[in-house]
Amino acid sequence: MRQEIRIGGFGGQGIVLAGHILGRAAIAAGKHAAMTQSYGPEMRGGRVAADVVLDDRPIDYPKVIRPEISVFLFQGAYEHHRQEIGPVLLYDQDLVQLHPEDAAREGRTVYAIRPNKIAEELGRRVVVNIAMLGALTALTDLLPAEVLEEAVLASVPRKALDLNREAFRWGLAHGLELRAQRKEVEVRR
């Protein structure tokens, strides 16, 4: 089954690396994966998106057509891509302010995640992408967490292994918590 994921942020947040890790994990798990990128016109610090397509069969069109899952860590990226948001939306509540109509759409699941806060608490904002991947893994059923964690550790500098492992696991726990909360709400309904 074809699944399309868009991760949007700004240059310096490690968005492309996050997309790369997701793709790398997918092929390690025996899936097919393709990642493409798009940028704003700025040379540095502008919006960036890593678009990842996952599939069980070889991927024909490698670009995202209508993302099933969108993740935004930057207002500018969210604004640029908001017409293409699909059934699942994750956004960093400390970095992105959602338009109310995007939050309340019929058939859409929205998670306010806090990877930036996790990264700040770890003392290194650069791991925001890894914390986000943890949350994404927990909140979707894209790939098993172990596979993702392995891909994270294989992709980051050796001297930063512990930091990244911690960021990923913290993000994962944070995501699982959000998921559990949602379930509770759904059950109560």
Partner: peptide, 9 residues
């Protein structure tokens, strides 16, 4: 450009 910049297996 696309084939150059696409990441895949």
């Amino acid at each position: 450009e696309l084939v150059g910049h696409t990441y895949e297996r």
